[in-house]
Amino acid sequence: MQFDRRGFLKITGLTLLGLSAKPGWEVFSKIDQPEPSPMAESLAKIRWAMAVDLKKCWSAKEGCRDCIDACHRIHNVPNLGTLKEEIKWTWTEPYEKVFPEHELEYSEENHRDKPVLLLCNQCDDPPCVKYCPTRATWRREDGIVMMDFHRCIGCRYCMAGCPYGSRSFNWRDPRPFIKKINPEYPTRTRGVVEKCNFCVERLAQGLIPACVEACKEKALIFGDLKKPDSEVRKALQNRVIYQRHPELGTKPKVYYIL
């Protein structure tokens, strides 16, 4: 007689009522955080980061969207065709807007309008995580700021918290707006927030993020900051690097190299 594979308790009738208190309690008190997971330790040894080599990026042909397209295709990001309800995981903005604090008035103006790739900064101290009332978003040990679409109630407080505008909201059912569905990755439903997840599902399979893979110019460099010999560490060495709004204390882990 087996009630449960994990063998909660092998009980017989008479003890049933009394003993059921404990597993009953476990069910009700199942709080999912912090729950030490066997992976946590190994995750803690990693700190994923990305560097965007703007020079390389700009050397690509005008209007190159390889990385964005790859990202959106793989993650079933819908294209609603309007600015109002736009959903984007990765996108570009002109340099002067991304780094408004950079004084461009008298410097060379040729990269003022150049596109800069934007995505979730996967902050070390992500504000969005603080605000979520249901812990639908949280930071993993390896630095990835995760979204649990199952749990999002759509209050959009995380969007108010994010200073980078990295989060999008599903203003309506996204499925009809997805050109070709990738069955490997779920779509979202209306009413939840979504954002770039550093291709966490690909990392798990030992692959690099889709955008990095798609970039023919090798302008995107991805790797583990905690490994001294990782590509991303090498890319950051001896270069002038920028982060978006480091003054806000969010410690972004997407770097821009110029």
Binding site: T134, I153, G154, C155, Y157, F169, R190
Partner: peptide
């Protein structure tokens, strides 16, 4: 709310760091 059907999650998964 985007997902009013899930509003009770705010109690079930209550996260008290959130000012909400």
């Amino acid at each position: 709310l985007g997902r009013p059907d899930r509003m009770l999650y705010a109690i079930r998964y209550a996260h008290f760091r959130s000012p909400l």
